[in-house]
Design a binder for these strands. Structure first.
Lengths: 126, 126
DNA sequence: AGGTCGTATGCATTTATGTACATATAGCTA
DNA sequence: TAGCTATATGTACATAAATGCATACGACCT
């Protein structure tokens, strides 16, 4: 990989929230909708959307609309080396540091019907 | 590693020149002086110093003064996981993309006497 | 059509980063 | 001491990134 490319990817990824988004997408093998991320990360919807836009802009992530909802995954067509890079980075994260988010997301996923999200995000700050 | 820490390190490293500096330090196992880096990277002295300062500020790199010269290495006391992270990143770089710098640095190192740098940097843009 | 809900975007403000240049500091040598 | 060389730093400016908020869009439902 070229220096510029590596620097660009690292810059994109070098943000706490974006790392958290990626780690969740990876952990659950993607197909997570925005409202589920909003709840799991306890972060305002517009922020999550913005971070997703940046990740999308660099092709790291991909959204699939299904009706009102948009489901995100790590871009499955990511070149092998890029994917390995991302995976390698995420491995360095302490699992305990996001286990709570995992739990929350699990609970949200249990609420799905026919594999689809049926609720929105919670506007309160819990 | 915590999210904040990982994000911080990635941000520091997410710059072409800083990646180039790190890759050279790693390749030659450190102990490279600033003027040698300046020549190998063909980059103004003040820039190299500034990038080194940033890397130093995050403890990724370390300078040892010997008289007029300062020799830099990747911080040998870096925690294991951090070192692995850096190494992992650098592995993704195309070698051909910095082989020229390696050659230049090799030539500079050949000019050393008693293992010490005896010349300065070249102010011309070659 | 109108209302509602999930998602995306635009704008304004702040904050950080990159870049260039001049100059300071530290250590050498005469 | 003065003068030189290698390295470091301060300042100023431009550019980019983060943040917050309001609102737009798009798909659904009645």
């Amino acid at each position: 990989m070229k220096f510029e490319k590596l620097a660009e990817v690292l810059k994109t990824v070098a943000h706490e929230k974006r790392l958290r988004i990626l780690v969740l997408l990876e952990e659950f093998d993607g197909n997570i909708c925005v409202c589920e991320l909003v709840d799991a990360l306890n972060t305002p919807q517009y922020q999550v959307s913005q971070h997703l836009r940046e990740l999308r802009g660099k092709d790291l992530v991909r959204g699939n609309r299904d009706g009102t909802w948009v489901y995100y995954s790590i871009n499955p067509d990511l070149p092998r080396d890029l994917r390995q890079l991302i995976d390698g980075l995420l491995e360095h994260l302490d699992r305990e540091d996001y286990s709570r988010e995992i739990e929350k997301l699990e609970k949200r996923l249990e609420m799905r019907e026919d594999g689809k999200c049926v609720v929105g995000y919670d506007e309160s700050d819990e």
